[in-house]
């Protein structure tokens, strides 16, 4: 906790899986929300199929699964504002920033590599 004078570390959560097909995306989001309680420097990266986690228009009514996509919009209230999305992954999937339900920074592969390299802890999902 920063109030107690603790060390603030840079944590990055790397998301590479589409939602619903596996539980990785939801698990990652839950860990991110919990991590917010510890006042660390948290960022999220979305690459490969992970970009599908952020697409607009998700509706799970027919699946009897929770549509957790609105929760990404709550991250700002948790002071988690660094969301990086891989440009190449968007382009491969015919997506653009307008297709995403939150404000993100679209970054190149080289920029993403730099961001990863500067982390103290990288957690992959």
């Amino acid at each position: 906790m920063s109030d107690a004078g603790g060390v603030v570390k840079k944590f990055m959560f790397v998301n590479r899986k589409a939602p619903y097909g596996t539980v990785y995306a939801l698990e990652s989001l839950e860990v991110v929300l919990i991590s917010a309680a510890f006042d660390q420097d948290v960022s999220l990266a979305f690459l490969d199929d992970g970009v599908y986690e952020l697409t607009k228009g998700q509706s799970t009514k027919g699946l009897e699964m929770k549509n957790f996509s609105p929760t990404y919009r709550a991250l700002e209230g948790y002071d988690i504002e660094k969301l990086y999305v891989a440009r190449e992954s968007l382009e491969e999937r015919g997506l653009s920033e307008d297709d995403l339900l939150v404000d993100v920074q679209v970054v190149s592969c080289a920029e993403m590599a730099d961001l990863m390299a500067e982390q103290d802890v990288v957690l992959s999902f």
Binding site: V14, R16, K17, Q119, S124
Partner: peptide, 8 residues
């Protein structure tokens, strides 16, 4: 290495 990244 200072950090480990596990690619899944």
């Amino acid at each position: 290495h200072p950090a480990t990244q596990s690619w899944l």
